[in-house]
């Protein structure tokens, strides 16, 4: 074969390689751009005063996002309290019963749930919990509440936790379960004392990622948690949260409120970044070696 043809092929190969590098780099650019923009706009707005105060009324300068920060934490915690036990147990069920009708439907529903637009989930939570209803012996008064927002977010968390738990536990060797069963352990103890502790890093990372996923969700909170200009810790009442604050204030014409929105965006971003990095660390640290 003559040298010219080899050179042509090498050239093509280099060309393709450079293209791959370039496209890989292109994946990093959006994140860097977002980070750069948000940090530049938000970093100057954040200080102690910003974190511990609630927004001031229009016309007064200053104010902070304490109500949204506290609200977000409460709403997410309540959502996690609802979704984590259900998600882990459903995941355990799916990993234990790979075949069977219920497992099939459960798997299908979690898959579909994962693709349901968040605003639709918000509407469902609105119809269930915010609108008053009456079925004779139960009278539901309804009204916007943090709890209804948490329920909407819990529904969003559920598929992520279920599937990550299932996938983690499926990877554990059968010999582990047999070892426990051969010692005369009942099923629930095998699960809670052996299978879940050994798979804990995968389960936790699923929980963390689901929290990171819902932290920025705005749509399901619009007509559930609703928002609140004051600091509230009552989950039966409307509550502010970071994404709601950003949504409301970023579209306002007042500079002070815009500043709050930028600052809150940065906080939200740092939170999500932190959760992602933290997840990576715990999956590595807590991974059980066989």
């Amino acid at each position: 074969m003559d040298g010219k043809y080899v050179k042509y092929r090498l050239g093509k190969s280099y060309g393709f390689q450079s293209l791959v590098y370039l496209l890989a780099f292109a994946c990093i650019v959006p994140l860097l751009a977002i980070l750069f923009y948000i940090i530049r706009a938000g970093i100057t707005k954040i200080n102690w005063h910003f974190l511990v105060n609630i927004p001031k009324p229009v016309g007064e300068s200053g104010g902070g996002i304490a109500n949204a920060l506290v609200g977000s934490i409460i709403i997410i915690l309540v959502a996690a309290v609802i979704a984590v036990p259900i998600g882990i147990l459903a995941g355990v069920y799916l990993s234990e019963h790979r075949k069977g009708r219920l497992a099939y439907w459960c798997r299908l529903s979690t898959d579909i749930l994962q693709g349901v637009p968040s605003i639709v989930i918000g509407i469902v939570a609105y119809f269930w919990l915010v609108r008053p209803w009456d079925i004779g012996f139960i009278h539901h008064r309804g009204g916007f509440s943090a709890l209804s927002g948490s329920v909407a977010l819990a529904i969003m968390m559920l598929p992520i936790i279920v599937r990550s738990t299932e996938e983690t536990l499926k990877l554990l060797p059968d010999s582990l379960r047999e070892a426990a069963l051969a010692l005369g352990m009942p099923f629930h103890r095998v699960m809670f004392k052996v299978i879940i502790p050994v798979g804990i890093s995968g389960i936790l990372s699923g929980i963390m990622l689901s929290v990171a996923r819902i932290t920025g969700e705005t749509a399901p909170l619009l007509f559930t948690a609703f928002g609140n200009p004051y600091l509230s810790v009552n989950i039966g009442k409307p509550m502010q949260s970071l994404p709601l604050l950003i949504f409301n204030y970023a579209t306002s014409p007042y500079q002070d409120w815009l500043n709050l929105a930028w600052g809150a965006s940065l906080i939200l971003l740092v939170w999500v970044l932190f959760l992602n990095i933290f997840t990576k660390v715990i999956t590595r640290k807590w991974k059980v070696q066989f």
């Binding site: 060797p173 010999s175 582990l176 047999e178 070892a179 426990a180 050994v198 059980v288």
Partner: peptide
């Protein structure tokens, strides 16, 4: 006792 040693790794 099983074919492969299976101590509880945790």
């Amino acid at each position: 006792v099983f074919q492969r040693p299976n101590p509880f790794p945790n």
